[in-house]
């Protein structure tokens, strides 16, 4: 054990340099402002006050939350039955199906999102087809629908794989016991399978919700520039407005949200385990 903890030491150094130090730097920028002199920094809370008092920024925060929550929820609703179905197949077929689910992730996110533009836009695949059979065009791109579709499409594999893992790890004798004791298949699912798969669902939530709330490529491409989410806001502050301090403050707010949601999911996980 002792020799193992020694082996971890280089990692601590690595973590300090590449994780803790950058985080501290971001926090430093978030709580400071540059004075008239370039080298002078002074403590301030004005970036946070600016964020929480401006309606536009709060709308961005609200929109990010809303989209991320809807995405996570849909990922569970679609992903759970999928994972359940896969876990009930032959082992060989299971491997194949999981492979099929991960294949889209081999392609770059940007390319996949661009492909959705080609499918959804007014002159795109769907509308061209509708037109050719004499139906009116429907407005798909630059709507909530398009953004959520792109997000769910992108993040679904994370949810499916997590739930699938916890379902396939499950002790099959428990299912037999439940059946032997006279439970209907639905009762078995509700009382045995679902509670045991909750850790998978929670891991899936973490893996979907966190990237979803900070994403910016998908909403920008499928929702248009008016679809400003937290990630977009940080990008604009750093690269376009050159406001490093305000950008850092938003990053800090995002970090707090992420840590808080991780804490909540962890707590849920524990409660589920105790039950």
């Amino acid at each position: 054990m002792n020799s193992f903890s020694k082996m971890a030491k280089p990692y601590i150094l690595w973590a300090a340099f590449f994780i803790v130090f950058p985080m501290l730097l971001v926090m430093f920028y978030a709580f400071t402002q540059t004075g008239g002199d370039v080298a002078k920094f002074s403590f301030t809370l004005k970036h946070f006050i600016k964020f929480f008092t401006e309606k536009a920024f709060l709308e961005v925060l609200f929109l990010s939350f809303r989209i991320a929550l809807i995405t996570t929820l849909l990922c569970i609703i679609i992903g759970y039955p999928m994972a359940y179905f896969i876990s009930r197949q032959d082992e060989k077929i299971q491997t194949l199906l999981i492979l099929l689910i991960t294949i889209p992730m081999w392609i770059n996110l940007l390319v996949r999102t661009y492909a959705w533009i080609g499918i959804l836009q007014d002159t795109g695949l769907i509308n061209t087809f509708l037109e050719s059979i004499g139906l009116p065009k429907i407005k798909l791109i630059y709507t909530d629908f398009a953004v959520i579709l792109g997000m769910v499409y992108n993040f679904l594999p994370f949810m499916v794989i997590q739930i699938y893992t916890s379902l396939s790890k499950m002790d099959k004798s428990l299912l037999q016991a439940s059946e032997d004791l006279g439970a209907t298949p639905f009762q078995t699912f509700r009382k045995v399978v679902f509670p045991l798969s909750i850790p998978g669902v929670i891991a899936g939530i973490t893996l979907v919700f966190l990237p979803a709330i900070s994403t910016f490529v998908i909403p920008q491409f499928l929702g248009g520039g008016q679809y400003v989410m937290l990630g977009t806001l940080v990008e604009t502050q750093f690269l376009k407005a050159g406001e490093w301090h305000f950008g850092s403050a938003i990053s800090t707010i995002m970090a707090v949200i992420i840590i808080a949601s991780m804490y909540i999911t962890k707590k849920l996980d524990k409660e589920a385990g105790e039950r």
């Binding site: 920024f57 961005v60 400003v228 806001l233 604009t236 407005a241």
Partner: peptide, 14 residues
């Protein structure tokens, strides 16, 4: 002016 416009632009868009 860039800062003023940048903030205003965000408000217009959202």
């Amino acid at each position: 002016i860039k800062k003023v416009l940048s903030d205003a632009w965000l408000k217009i868009k959202v």
